[in-house]
Design a protein around this nucleic acid. Structure first.
Lengths: 224, 224
DNA sequence: CAAGTTACTGAACACCGTTTATCATCGGCC
DNA sequence: GGCCGATGATAAACGGTGTTCAGTAACTTG
């Protein structure tokens, strides 16, 4: 009997409709406008219905975050391809970084959900830090993609990180920090415009690849 | 007539009492427990009274954030002094970075208020990014302190950033990104423990100073 | 003492996330 | 076809939030 299947299909359909509504609200009206009631109104169901499909708001939002990381992954791949197939691994690594920055600037609201939601772990006891179930880069394959890029750069002798994973983490932290501070308005005194900020990002990438210690001249100093 | 002065004094006293109550709630019970009603209860006034002293919650919290940046500044100075007076500017620069990390780990709730509150700027129009009135590093002199440290390192020929301000911003972004990702649980797959995270921070600092490009050997690779 | 200013508050408003008791509908079964 | 239990959806409520406003009590001034 296909009746159970049909029900399951309908159930799944509404579930994704809900997530899509949430995603649309985030990108159209911002994170602050994202309430259960607003989502419910958009899908034309009562707020209580949402709780038949999701345990709570966090579980619902986690799916939005997951989608966000998928989009971020798409940005990365696109940017790397735009860099050209012949780009050396270090340039590809840079392209991944640029993709991260562009994504954050293009989808600021999305970026907020992705990193404000699991938020900082509770200040409970010492040691038991580190969230376990929050969605992150790892979910959409974007993380392994980044790590692979770094690994190729290491293999090609272009980077000498202490390991692809840790190297990728450091590079991630750098662009994430830059973007977070910029979007939070904390670089207002340093950077005058968005173009100027992008220049700063370029300089930062140069720093990572070539270091700050003088006496090392590899040709380029920074690229905008 | 000293009556107006006394009133002004009392007014100021209550104002700071309110801010202190807010600060205590943040550090004792976390950011999520920080409500206007909770603050009011702690100072033993009605919630409505708070609005005679602050325009809204954001204005009140901004003062807490300011205090947070002051404390961060104290951390920095302390850490630099701990590094010893004879430490070279590059080591002092590292010390400032470590202070930032320690502060974030020791006062996680504080750290959250400081960087989640002004939050990401609204997604309004293109170009008009960058908050103007939110408290930041600049307020407590901590920023100029950091910049000075970088400047000394440059003067001493130990760094070759494109400028002290921009160099400081990049270094800030790196540690800020590391700490943010770690506290958000996004490094769970990379870093196993807090000690491991601190090791990663050390590696990151090494990267900044020495770069990733191979062929450069300056002696040390990372310090934990 | 009367008048006026000031500091304060109780109660309300509009929202939020979430739960529960209730209701309609639909599928399987006799 | 008609009943009955399961399922899906909801209205209403609960306790919370930030914030406002009319009203009151206390204090200062003339």
């Amino acid at each position: 009997m296909g009746i159970a299947e049909r029900r399951e299909r309908e159930r799944e359909a509404l579930r994704t409709r809900i997530v899509e509504a949430a995603r649309d609200i985030v990108s159209e009206e911002g994170l602050d406008a994202l309430s259960m009631r607003a989502i419910a109104e958009r899908v034309e169901y009562s707020p209580a219905t949402l709780y038949l499909y999701f345990k709570d708001k966090e579980e619902l939002l986690r799916e939005v975050v997951r989608e966000g990381f998928r989009r971020l992954g798409a940005y990365m791949r696109r940017e790397v391809e735009a860099a050209g197939a012949g780009a050396n691994p270090a340039e590809q690594h840079r392209a991944v970084g640029w993709a991260y920055v562009y994504f954050a600037l293009d989808h600021t609201a999305y970026f907020r959900v992705m990193f404000e939601l699991p938020s900082v772990t509770r200040v409970t006891g010492p040691g038991d830090c580190c969230a376990r179930e929050g969605a992150s880069l790892a979910d959409a394959g974007s993380w392994s993609y980044t790590v692979d890029t770094v690994q190729r750069a290491i293999d090609a002798g272009l980077l000498r990180a202490s390991g692809a994973e840790r190297g990728a983490a450091i590079a991630w932290a750098l662009v994430h920090g830059l973007v977070s501070l910029y979007l939070g308005g904390h670089l207002a005194g340093v950077v005058g415009s968005q173009e100027d900020f992008l220049r700063l990002v370029g300089e930062a990438m140069g720093v990572v690849h070539e270091g700050w210690t003088p006496g090392v001249e590899t040709g380029r100093s920074a690229d905008a």
